[in-house]
Simulated assay, not measured.
Amino acid sequence: MRHLAANALTILIVLGIALAGVIAWGVNQYRAEGPLTEPTEISIPRGTSLPRAAEILAEAGAISDPRIFRLGARYSEMQSRIQAGEFEIPAGSSMESVLICLVNQSTCRRVVYQITVVEGSTSWQVVEQLKAMETLTGEIDEIPPEGSLAPETYQANRGDTRAEMIQRMRDAQDAILAEAWENRVEGLPISSPDEALILASIIEKETAVAEERRRVASVFINRLNRGMRLQTDPTVIYGITEGKGVLGRGLTRSELNKRTDWNTYQIDGLPPTPIANPGKAAIEAAVNPLETRDLYFVADGTGGHAFAETLVQHTRNVQRWRRIEAERKQSQ
């Protein structure tokens, strides 16, 4: 019996030494320099399990043994913290370094994509932009309300959904509008944030000159206060296209005379909806216009506008602009 017990103890000791050797070998493999000879981009889709993530990394040549990688993740209790996204794994990264990269993205470069929503884009145009981004997933069930998307540059990861991007844009616009409305000046002839957004969209489409926005806003505010129609071409264009594409030509007299819900030559006050997605500056201009007596403006040939308080002044400005247009046509 003593002999058998001694043999059993010897076997256990040998097995223990062998196990320790295997563990030491595994740890060494886990921490050793990896097989990548150059930086490599790896995409981990949303909802990927640890075993599948290990397979993706092995298939890309980023790790040498998916089993050791999985064991390392579980032992370090990081398996549930792996992030989805697209990562650039540095050359020679160990399995430990790769795991840390997927968990704490500050340790390696994360590949991100950008989409820029330009001020004055319509919601239909933004949806078309998102549809064209192959890195995004999912469908957009309906075009968001006009004016509800904040123009700015957004970052997206491969696999992000288009619906998520739309919601981010809507949340951003809601925050901008709420802050602007909270800080509005007193005595405005608009009674709600929705009306401020409509006015801001018209301001956005009328001028691309930052310094002019508040003065353009003052013209429309003055007209609303006097009960004058806004008579702004961009609203006529929106009534024709409804935001789906670009008109690409000048307006005809018949179009100016045709009544639509948005044609401010034919309707009183503001149109029923915004005509584009205004940026923060346009929204702020709508609720904090300059104090002027201006009632008119027309292009001045420099990219900006000539403003006028009276119809006589405005008529002279219009004549000057028409001469500039005629001279440009002759020189072409």
Rank of each mutant, 00 (worst) to 15 (best):
H3S: 15
N7E: 13
V14I: 15
N28W: 14
Q29H: 14
R31L: 14
E33N: 11
P35C: 10
T37G: 13
S43L: 14
I44L: 05
I44P: 00
G47V: 06
P51Q: 08
I63Y: 01
P66F: 09
R70F: 08
R70H: 08
G72A: 12
A73M: 09
S76L: 13
E77H: 15
R81M: 12
E86G: 01
A91C: 08
M95T: 05
I100W: 11
L102W: 05
Q105W: 12
C108K: 08
C108V: 04
R110V: 14
S121W: 10
Q129G: 06
A132V: 10
T135G: 05
E142N: 10
P145R: 10
E146Q: 12
T153L: 10
Y154D: 00
R158G: 02
G159H: 03
T161R: 10
R162Y: 07
A163I: 06
I166R: 02
Q167R: 14
I176V: 15
E182Y: 11
R184I: 09
V185K: 11
E186W: 02
P193Y: 01
E195N: 08
L199I: 07
S201R: 00
S201Y: 01
I202V: 10
I202Q: 00
E206C: 05
V209C: 06
F220P: 00
N225G: 11
M228A: 04
Q231K: 07
T232Q: 03
V236A: 02
I240H: 03
V246W: 13
L247D: 08
G250T: 12
W262L: 08
Y265P: 01
Q266R: 15
D268K: 14
I275T: 02
A276W: 00
A286H: 02
F297H: 02
G304P: 07
F307G: 03
R316Q: 15
V318H: 07
R323Q: 14
K329H: 14
S331G: 12
S331K: 14
